[in-house]
Write a protein that binds this DNA or RNA. Structure first.
Length: 322
DNA sequence: AGCCATTTTCCTGTTT
DNA sequence: TAAACAGGAAAATGGC
């Protein structure tokens, strides 16, 4: 298979996990929404010089004219490339995994590619790319805003009507119940890598509101819980709540409580935001995580970067826990 | 005011 | 080489 970084195993798992096209398209849309993607081809490690040279039309509106607004059949070469780049980004793959030169094609050609074409071009990742294209071809939301699409996708995940408010631009500002008021807009626009953060902040702030409304006693501060929510609970809650977790942390082994940070710095930023600490980093967050080993809230997972496992003193992460 | 749990910050060294 | 991991030390934080 193609060359990968040390993340090869987990990257593959990641890809397989994300095979659910609905989840995948949601992630794409969320990430796309914050320009997390680098659309400068020269910055890509592949240094591909695509044949398209026309500058990409400027987006005055919120993401108008980008690949997700258009049926893949009508994608330009740039849009195909953009979609691929997003795929790599979302899955934290090494860019060398994808032979970009094989995709110097228009959307029309892309849509005509068979599964075999994809697997020949990209190996094991091919079937995911193929299914994503098929999904976009037949079930995509086009012609308008990402946000509209996002709402649709979120609605499809909504099992408890009324429990989730669709995420909208104008609902960025939330009144949070117990720990802070997120100026999500100001925060997320200024941070790296945080379309994820945008979405997360909105969802997280809202669920805090809901939690305190439903369970006022839980919102009250418990003994020696100086900051309202412990770090491990914050991490757990991201994992347990898909709408809070647009590709930030992912289960590696759900039943064993093994999980992996996908966007470690973005999570740190969010933790910092929650604690009103703009200088939080993954390095500092991870030090706090390591203290949990001794308390058996976490167990070590040797040899796997960014991977942790809940320990016997961590509560509420198991599937049957409420 | 002081104690305590829980980080946060900083650091040096090691591993991947 | 960069990023992540390890863990000591000390400071900060905020509830009790």
């Amino acid at each position: 298979m193609c060359h990968q970084t040390g993340r090869s195993q987990t990257a593959l798992l990641n890809v397989l996990w994300i095979a659910d096209p609905e989840v995948f398209s949601k992630e794409i849309m969320i990430l796309q929404g914050s320009n997390i993607m680098n659309i400068n081809p020269s910055a890509n490690s592949h240094s591909l010089q695509p044949s398209w040279t026309a500058p990409y039309p400027t987006c005055d509106g919120f993401f108008s004219g980008q690949w997700h607004d258009v049926h893949p059949q009508y994608w330009t070469k740039f849009q195909v490339w953009e979609w691929l780049q997003q795929f790599v980004e979302t899955n934290q793959l090494d860019a060398s995994c994808i032979p970009f030169q094989e995709f110097d094609i228009t959307g029309e050609r892309l849509c005509s590619m068979t599964l075999q074409d994809f697997t020949q071009a990209t190996g094991a990742v091919g079937h995911i790319l193929y299914s994503n294209v098929q999904n976009l071809k037949w079930h995509g939301q086009y012609g308008s805003q990402v946000l509209q699409s996002l709402n649709v996708v979120i609605k499809t995940e909504q099992t408890d009507p009324g429990s989730i408010t669709p995420w909208k631009e104008d609902t960025f500002l939330y009144e949070s119940s117990y720990d802070d008021l997120y100026d999500v807009k100001a925060f997320s626009r200024s941070q790296l890598s945080t379309a994820a953060a945008n979405h997360y902040n909105a969802a997280y702030a809202e669920s805090d509101v809901k939690k305190s409304q439903d369970h006022p006693q839980r919102a009250s501060v418990k003994k020696h819980n100086p900051r309202g929510t412990h770090l491990w609970e914050f991490i757990r809650d991201i994992l347990l709540t898909p709408e809070k977790n647009p590709g930030l942390i992912r289960w590696e082994d759900r039943s064993e409580g093994v999980f992996r940070f996908l966007k470690s710095e973005a999570v740190a930023q969010l933790w910092g935001k929650k604690k009103n600490n703009s200088s939080m980093t993954y390095e500092k967050l991870s030090r706090a995580m390591r203290y949990y080993y001794k308390r058996e809230i976490l167990e070590r997972v040797d040899g796997r970067r960014l991977v942790y496992k809940f320990g016997k003193n961590a509560r509420g992460w198991k599937e049957n826990d409420s």
